[in-house]
């Protein structure tokens, strides 16, 4: 049972993390290749605080605020550069994060932080809590899609220049997307730190940033259900196929490549297309 609880907790944290990126890349169309840095920011912030005996629950809003603040700064960068330039800039931010953390003794440097206190709740309770937070973010995402904010995001993802010509201050909306998305990642990071109770610079590197973007794209960029589903599956897939341990990463990357090559609109796209075919077949 303990194993299943660990799996479910891992899944929930990944879902929250992937949905937070979906907010930025899926809703608002700003591709980020450095999202793991915000997971890391939240994780390090929260771990540092609980190690200084701050209650775990209080560290959640703190992690959100700190990650959201850095997200705001990256959002400012997104006002200067676009598209490919933005993807590379965010990638750079990811490398910069790891590079800086490695050299900070108070964050454990290369070795990372071990012995992070457990959250003040049972493992079952923690699992439920993680699932709850992921669900809250999913519902919030679904709401935003329907709101006028979601309407504007659609427009920005589609064509930012036109959005401005329609009199909408696209910059503010992009900043909002970055702040909300990175704050969500910060909370996921706090959960992550207290789930694994060890964090190191390599937990938040480029591979993690790519993995989470892969979750979003495999799920179907912008689709809340698709992304949540893909994140849940992909986060535990490596654990489930451990018998092919040596080929794990190969399998994973081959899958990702195949997905991009043959079904780039992701699981959500496949479902949508099959549903349409089904409807046509049964008039």
């Amino acid at each position: 049972m303990a194993y299943e609880i660990t799996l479910a907790t891992t899944m929930a944290i990944s879902v929250l993390f992937a949905l937070s990126l979906n907010f930025i890349s899926g809703f608002c169309g700003q591709i980020s290749l450095g999202h793991a840095a915000f997971l890391g920011t939240g994780a390090y912030a929260s771990a540092t605080l609980t190690k200084a005996s701050v209650p775990f629950l209080l560290t959640l809003p703190a992690s959100a605020v700190i990650a959201g603040f850095f997200g705001f700064l990256i959002g400012l960068a997104s006002l200067r550069v676009r598209h490919d330039f933005l993807a590379i800039t965010t990638m750079g931010v990811g490398f910069l994060f790891v590079g800086v953390v490695r050299k900070q003794d108070f964050l454990g440097g290369e070795l990372g932080m071990a012995g992070i206190p457990s959250p003040d709740m049972s493992r079952e309770m923690f699992m439920v809590f993680c699932i709850f937070l992921a669900a809250v973010f999913a519902v919030f995402s679904l709401y935003i899609r329907r709101s006028w904010m979601g309407f504007v995001f659609d427009s920005i993802a589609d064509n930012e220049d036109v959005t401005r010509i329609l009199g909408i201050d696209a910059s503010r909306f992009k900043l909002a997307a970055f702040v909300i998305g990175t704050a969500g990642a910060g909370i996921a990071g706090a959960l992550y730190a207290h789930h694994f109770r060890y964090i190191g610079p390599d937990s938040f590197g480029f591979v993690q940033s790519v993995s989470v973007l892969a979750m979003v794209i495999v799920g179907g960029i912008g689709s809340v259900w698709g992304v949540a589903f893909a994140a849940a599956i992909l986060s535990v897939l490596p654990l489930l196929v451990q018998f092919v341990d040596d080929y794990k990463l190969l399998l994973y990357s081959a899958l990702l490549f195949a997905m991009m090559r043959f079904a780039p609109d992701g699981i959500a796209g496949i479902v949508r297309r099959s549903a349409a075919r089904f409807r046509r077949a049964t008039p």
Partner: peptide, 23 residues
């Protein structure tokens, strides 16, 4: 085959190809 897709598709495909090659 994916040139007509949004650019991030090729980017992710390329990253996947890179990781697979390393493996």
């Amino acid at each position: 085959p994916i040139l007509h897709r949004p650019p991030y598709i090729a980017l992710i495909a390329s990253i996947a190809l890179f990781i697979a090659s390393e493996e």
